[in-house]
């Protein structure tokens, strides 16, 4: 569904105000996401996970420099195609709940997402009602403003907004942050259900343990590099099936496993 080859990204910064330099945030990143499965992107804060999502959606500032190639459904995904496809074929579930407009009711916002995906006004209204009902949001929650919703409900509204677009690639950026276990499992189940419908789901998270419960493949990122892409079942036991020391250390650091901090991964060449 989505194939990324050697993707690099540099963003400008200004050490002195007349002088522009570029900082590399993504470096030679390659991965591919297949239809009908969840592909998790795991990494620490600042690893470039959200930037990867924004690059695929074409939401970067105009002065960003990127290299490498993206393919979506076999055809090259350039900036123009990104603009044409986002909201229709590509959907993003944003990280922050502040992405919801505080001045509009949730049902209306879902309706807008449907309109932007090209539905007729009547069709959009119907699609919005269906999507909200699908995520167990009752009439009262539909008529509520974002500040009246709990964190989990707001997440489900955001998921409903991605669902109405009928997109075949859904990128969920940290969808489980700040949720209690019950709400978190609900959101993860919703994402797994999207994959079962035949969509490709890209789950961006730093929560490896819970990502493994629904993901088929996991890509571990570190400081803009793709450290390793492994099948979910390879995160098992002491992590001996994993190739890179960083991924093994990440796995070992989980409380359920050894709960140790092994700094041996620092010896790997690209992690100086």
């Amino acid at each position: 569904m989505l194939r990324i080859e050697q993707l690099s990204l540099a963003l400008p910064y200004y050490p002195r105000f007349w002088r522009r330099r570029y900082a590399t945030h993504l470096n030679q990143l390659s991965l591919s996401v297949t239809a009908g499965s969840v592909h998790a992107i795991v990494g620490a804060s600042g690893a470039g996970k959200s930037l990867l999502a924004h690059t695929i959606m074409g939401l970067l500032p105009e002065d960003a420099r990127s290299g490498g190639r993206c393919f979506f459904k076999g055809a090259a995904l350039d900036e123009r195609r990104k603009r044409a496809l986002r909201g229709r074929e590509l959907a993003l579930i944003p990280q922050s709940l502040s992405a919801l407009d505080p001045l509009a009711r949730s049902q209306r916002q879902v309706g807008w997402a449907a309109r932007r995906a090209g539905l007729s006004p009547a069709g959009a209204h119907q699609a919005a009602c269906q999507a909200l009902a699908h995520y167990q949001l009752d009439e009262r929650a539909c008529q509520a403003y974002p500040h009246e919703l709990s964190g989990g409900m707001a997440r489900r509204v955001l998921t409903a907004m991605a669902q109405v677009t009928q997109a075949s690639l859904v990128i969920a950026d940290e969808p489980t942050v700040g949720l209690d276990p019950l709400q978190r499992d609900r959101v993860l189940d919703a994402l797994a259900a999207l994959a079962r419908q035949g969509k490709a789901v890209m789950l961006i998270t730093h929560d490896l343990r819970h990502a493994l419960s629904i993901a088929e493949h996991v890509t571990v990122m570190h400081e803009g590099h793709c450290v390793e892409t492994a099948a979910a079942h390879m995160f098992h036991g002491t992590g001996q099936a994993l190739q890179s020391a960083y991924a093994r250390a990440l796995w070992q650091a989980l409380p359920d496993n050894a709960f140790t901090l092994d700094s041996g991964y620092m010896k790997e060449p690209y992690l100086a």
């Binding site: 986002r86 590509l90 944003p94 992405a99 407009d101 807008w112 995906a117």
Partner: peptide
Amino acid sequence: SDIATHAFAQGASRADIAWRHGVR
């Protein structure tokens, strides 16, 4: 803001964002 970025991700144009979110 995040609101506009999210709207762009939904494929909205600037005019669309200005009209639906901006005016309010």
